[in-house]
């Protein structure tokens, strides 16, 4: 075994893992305030990527496309909250599981109708010419993924810690009833969390698209892995997702190199099954088991 090849695999896998972590972080945001998540989050990633691509195609400069895409993702997040989650939460039912899955399916068929089934390249001004660092090839494009992931997570965390609204977000997560007694509207805070979660998912889409291309199914495998990361790290574990994401990404890339590319999805599934076996009623209990 060549240590340099292993290092190469670990680094490029870990970068992919950061994207899983980012999507998993989006799950954590809504779970914290409402104990619910959007099961159609993968479609949200995909739709935001398509929307961003459309912005580029109509001539919007790359660096303006990014905030545009993020806003679109946030708007979709708000839509999911309004249409799929709010009523179910008010009735203390788990209807949000089914409703968010249905919204996802709706998003999928809309994408097929609007943009077609083909995968399309996503142009980027960031170079993909490899740099050599300690014998490892890494492209500026890959580095931009890491920077993007940490930048957006860092921004959201700064918001949570340093603004009163962010502290209110934490208060609702800690004790919803007590937060209401302070005059904090739990409904609005949950909206905020869905908006942020949508924004984070859109960021994942924008970051990954130049590497994977954009198509209706671009996020189906991605979302499963993000799920695995969220379940293993715990839906309330803060930055645990980053660690688990990196490990899963590295494992995947090693598996596909040494065992065969057909086995690429294996580590994620094994991890998910293990996590569910170890804590079957784990972090989101019934919800996870139904989905899987």
């Amino acid at each position: 075994m060549n240590i340099e090849i292993i290092a190469q695999m670990v680094v490029s896998g870990a970068l992919m893992g950061l994207v899983y972590a980012l999507i998993a972080y989006g799950f954590q945001l809504t779970y914290a305030t409402s104990k619910s998540i959007n099961f159609g989050q993968g479609e949200l990633v995909m739709l935001s990527a398509f929307f961003s691509l459309t912005l580029l195609n109509i001539g919007v400069p790359y660096w303006l496309m990014v905030p545009g895409g993020l806003l679109f993702g946030a708007a979709l997040g708000l839509l999911v909250e309004r249409a799929g989650v709010r009523l179910a939460l008010q009735q203390k039912s788990e209807g949000w599981i089914l409703l968010t899955i249905i919204l996802g399916l709706l998003g999928f068929s809309s994408a097929e109708n609007i943009w077609g089934r083909d995968d399309r390249p996503f142009p980027t001004p960031i170079s993909s010419d490899a740099l050599h660092v300690f014998g490892i090839n890494i492209t500026p494009l890959e580095i931009s993924v890491a920077i993007g992931v940490f930048a957006i997570m860092g921004l959201v965390e700064l918001f949570k810690r340093n603004t009163l609204l962010g502290k209110a977000f934490e208060a609702v997560s800690a004790d919803r009833d007590a937060a209401e007694l302070m005059g904090i509207s739990a409904t609005r805070t949950i909206m905020l969390s869905y908006g942020l979660s949508g924004m984070v998912a859109a960021m994942a889409g924008i970051l990954i698209s130049p590497i994977t291309t954009v198509g209706p199914t671009m996020a189906s495998a991605l979302i499963l892995k993000a799920f695995a990361v969220a379940v293993v790290a715990g839906l309330d574990s803060g930055f645990g997702v980053v660690l688990v994401g990196i490990v899963l990404g590295a494992l995947e890339s090693l598996t596909s190199f040494y065992i065969g590319s057909g086995w690429r999805e294996a580590p994620g599934l094994v991890l998910l099954i293990l996590a569910l076996a170890v804590r079957p009623n784990g972090v989101f209990g019934k919800a996870t088991i139904r989905k899987v």
């Binding site: 009163l164 502290k167 934490e170 800690a174 004790d175 302070m182 005059g183």
Partner: peptide, 21 residues
């Protein structure tokens, strides 16, 4: 609010009187 600091708890007590950002 257990995970939040004492001072954050106090600030949140005044949530409706204070600027949010």
């Amino acid at each position: 609010f257990g995970p939040l600091s004492v001072e954050d708890n106090l600030l949140l007590g005044a949530f409706s009187r204070l600027p949010h950002f």
